[in-house]
Design a protein around this nucleic acid. Sequence first.
DNA 1: TCTCGTTCCAAACGTTCGTTCGAATGCCGG
DNA 2: CCGGCATTCGAACGAACGTTTGGAACGAGA
Lengths: 223, 223
Amino acid sequence: MSTRPLQDPAPDLPPETERDAATKAAVLAAAERLFAVRGLRCVSVRDITAEAGVNLASVNYHFGSKDALVFEIFRRRTAELSRDRTRMLHEATARHDGKPPVREILAALMEPPLRWSNPANVRRISMQFIIRARSEGSEAVREVIRTDVSHLRPFAEALMTALPSLPPEEVYWRLHFTLGMIHNNRFAEFDRLHALSDGLTRDSDVDALLKRMLDFAEAGFLR
Amino acid sequence: MSTRPLQDPAPDLPPETERDAATKAAVLAAAERLFAVRGLRCVSVRDITAEAGVNLASVNYHFGSKDALVFEIFRRRTAELSRDRTRMLHEATARHDGKPPVREILAALMEPPLRWSNPANVRRISMQFIIRARSEGSEAVREVIRTDVSHLRPFAEALMTALPSLPPEEVYWRLHFTLGMIHNNRFAEFDRLHALSDGLTRDSDVDALLKRMLDFAEAGFLR
DNA sequence: TCTCGTTCCAAACGTTCGTTCGAATGCCGG
DNA sequence: CCGGCATTCGAACGAACGTTTGGAACGAGA
């Protein structure tokens, strides 16, 4: 009711062509946050609309269904993440005359999601949402994960160019392993790590983690 | 209410000491299978009891609640998996006079879950269940994941012994990366890999995958 | 044979969920 | 000022869920 605080208009969803996208934006922001924190199934449409300060029917009116809302957020965020990664890969390619070294290719793959996960980053919630949606999402989300590999192709090709003597099969497998390392960066996994190391690993910032992951994966590729 | 039968004498669901544990065993087997295939939230108590051919109330009678059932299966299977891993580590330790090399330590960590995932293995469903429960489980499950690290301690210590010059902090991080690689072995991730490689990676058996993972992780540790 | 505790069963309870509906509201071109 | 349209709103619907209940069935020990 009345005027909503209207937060987060710029960085997120563009102005769009519609007359008023405030409700849609509020739903998207609230849904992403709640999904990221509690999980997809533990957040009801009522939770979302209450958090957003909009009517219960808004979700179905603007997005069609709850699943479609999840898919919409997932699509936006993964596209944005892929853009960040691709941009870094292009920069590395330009820097090295079309043949970037393995480490920089892997950095383009790792750095965006790691930076997003930084507590100080506005995309931290988005990264958590992506991770959750990847494992809790509907069939439509899983279908996208399974089949949409176009954004990974340039990375695989760059790696094959950087490692011409390595069979393509091996490149794909090692890329798979690397992606596994990246996707494992959830809160619960970090908590376990810190518990195992008695807190020894707790004071590691993004840059240190990135360096460690790069060292590990690069060695795996170059061995 | 009243005294519950006090279950769990044997690893799986053999005769047990109870007069008749057929219902419990049927529920456990059906629940594990359905949970592994469809996901925890997409399986209702009705689905489980129908599949098991028992009464709807059986789950709550024998286990207390649906969440408690999930927790029970998770506890059994992870304990069994940890036993397999620990046994392999002990064998490697005995083989090398108390100082097993990095590769054999990592093999003890990787081989059991990989063998379980083999289509021909009876534990394939259990492995899929564990992976699903790790990300979809209740707070109780997540609490166990977060805090119960006792079974990983021997592996961390063995690695530190094998790599005395590597700071413990690094050992913990690289162990974290390795576990990420292992946990990434879900159906959807494999499908994506095969889609990316145009089927080039499809005909890889467990032994080949184990060798690839070992090569990759060992290089990361030894670099 | 009787008794009592354990297990099983059909039925229902109460809640929560995603979704839908019809009316009300606000906005803008004419 | 008015008519049309997109949006918002309160309210309800119907389904699915986990759980509970009271009694029936069963089996072993007295």
